[in-house]
């Protein structure tokens, strides 16, 4: 059942990323190019995605477990620290260069060819390096460990 749900939600996610234009780097960069030919599409994508999720969080408060019986994520973390700002800034600066975010990678791989594959490889290397360094310096603080567990 878990795998079936992952299959359906994954497929719908992939379709949504392609239909919306989020998987197209040129459109993403167009959204951030406020000084150029601004393309507002991404705002509609975010608004559209937020709507069902807001309902889902309301429902989440009324149910005890997920459909498959697993625990639901607890309350959101509130830690706002340098690591959050630094990581987000680095992510944003990189996002503006090629226009691909982690959610767009896999859908864009479908017809994106070698450039998307190269980006995907580099992104994985970056993720693994950061994970290894964080583990070494004990960067998985109690708060982050909770978040990691909640996302598993």
């Amino acid at each position: 059942m878990r795998y079936l749900i992952a299959l359906v939600s994954g497929a719908v996610f992939g379709v949504g990323m392609m239909v919306s234009g989020m998987a197209n780097p040129a459109r993403v960069i167009g959204f951030f190019d406020v000084a150029g030919a601004w393309d507002p599409t991404l705002a509609f994508v975010m608004a559209g995605a937020m709507l069902p999720m807001a309902f889902a969080w309301v429902l989440r408060a009324r149910v005890k477990t997920s459909l498959v019986g697993d625990a639901l994520p607890g309350p959101a973390l509130q830690t706002i620290d340098l690591r959050l700002f630094g990581g987000s800034a680095l992510f944003g600066l990189g996002w503006g260069v090629a226009g691909i975010c982690p959610g767009a990678v896999v859908p864009a791989l479908s017809v994106g060819g070698w450039p998307v594959a190269l980006f995907a490889g580099a992104m994985l290397v970056g993720m693994l390096i950061a994970r290894i360094v964080l583990n070494k310096i004990g960067g998985v603080s109690a708060a982050h460990a909770v978040e990691l567990n909640a996302s598993r």
Partner: peptide
């Protein structure tokens, strides 16, 4: 397309949350 695709992305995330308990 953005709005429609966005709704699909949100639906997928909602299903993953309520179905599997995952973000």
């Amino acid at each position: 397309h953005g709005l429609g695709g966005g709704l699909l992305i949100g639906l997928a995330s909602a299903l993953f949350l309520l179905g599997n308990g995952r973000i």
